[in-house]
């Protein structure tokens, strides 16, 4: 299978933080969500994809090309939304359009106009007067208006209200209808990822905890609710993480391997993240 994005044993060292031998594969036509706590290394990964920082080991391929000194053609086919709007404050819709028209050979002005109208971005205001939501919408409109094949989004939906987030997720789902298109997105809003993603990669303190198909992950894991005593009787190798509360205990378990008449709820991505991190802290 051809991959839109691939990390092989990628390492990046900072003082006090290491992105440790990260590997993942995003097949074409899919959406991969990158989750992890603040400082887990999500933005570092996104910077590495675009060669903004140097890696200390491993290899990254973007649309089949090595990420170091990506050729212009490949860069043209990647739409990026950073975690902040990087347009200088004096830019407005008209000037953003003019600038991008000169930068991207494939710039699609009609598409841009269509998106800014869909996002109801104000014609006259400059970026300085934009709210965070408007800034993100502008970045997303730009990223989608040069016929990209791969979208790389760093916290693109954070800071937006649920209505707008839904609207933007719809835009992403439209984009992914073309099976050559792919999306790699990091987010804190796990429900968004749950809604949209085919693959989930969970990064914790610079290490990949899991990177797999979402359905396979949710099939494999479940949240068990039982008494503390019952929990103690279960094979510890099947328990990923646990927490105790006033009513008993909850545990993230490998439900496919757990035999017996237990009450097991489906695990959400959020459950998995919380249980994993909590377990590590203990």
């Amino acid at each position: 299978m051809e991959h839109a994005l691939e990390f092989r044993e990628v390492t990046k060292q900072y003082t006090g933080f290491t992105l440790d031998r990260v590997s993942l594969q995003l097949p074409k036509g899919c959406i991969m969500g990158l989750i992890g706590e603040n400082g887990a290394g999500k933005s570092t990964m996104i910077k590495l994809i675009m060669d903004l920082i140097r890696k200390d080991g491993g290899a990254i391929t973007v649309l089949g090309q090595d990420s170091v000194n990506l050729p212009r053609q490949t860069k043209e086919a990647v739409g990026v939304v950073m975690d902040e709007c990087c347009f200088p404050e004096y830019v407005n819709l008209q000037s953003a359009n003019k600038i991008m028209k000169s930068i991207y050979r494939m710039w699609d002005e009609t598409k841009f106009q269509e998106l800014v109208q869909r996002f109801s971005l104000p014609e006259k205001k400059t970026v300085k007067e934009y709210s965070r939501g408007m800034k993100m919408k502008l970045s997303i409109a730009v990223a989608l208006s040069h016929r990209p094949q791969l979208l790389v989004l760093d916290e693109a939906t954070s800071g937006l209200d649920p209505v707008v987030r839904n609207e933007i997720l719809d835009v992403f789902l439209d984009f992914i209808q073309d099976e050559t298109h792919s999306i790699f997105m990091s987010s804190h809003i796990l429900s968004d990822l749950e809604k949209a993603c085919d693959y989930i990669t969970f990064l914790h303190q610079g290490k990949v905890i899991f990177s797999d198909e979402k359905d396979r992950i949710t099939e494999q894991y479940g949240v068990l609710k039982c008494s503390e005593k019952e929990l103690e009787s279960i094979d510890p190798s099947l328990i990923v993480g646990k927490r105790k509360n006033a009513f008993g205990a909850e545990a993230l378990v490998l439900k496919s391997k757990l035999r017996g008449g237990y009450l097991i709820d489906n695990a959400t991505v959020e459950d998995m993240m919380l249980f994993y991190i909590k377990e590590k802290e203990q």
Binding site: K47, L52, V78, M82, E84, C86, I103
Partner: peptide, 11 residues
């Protein structure tokens, strides 16, 4: 504005 890093994601 952080323009340079943004520009580097472009061609």
């Amino acid at each position: 504005s952080g323009w340079n890093k943004y520009a580097l994601t472009m061609p």
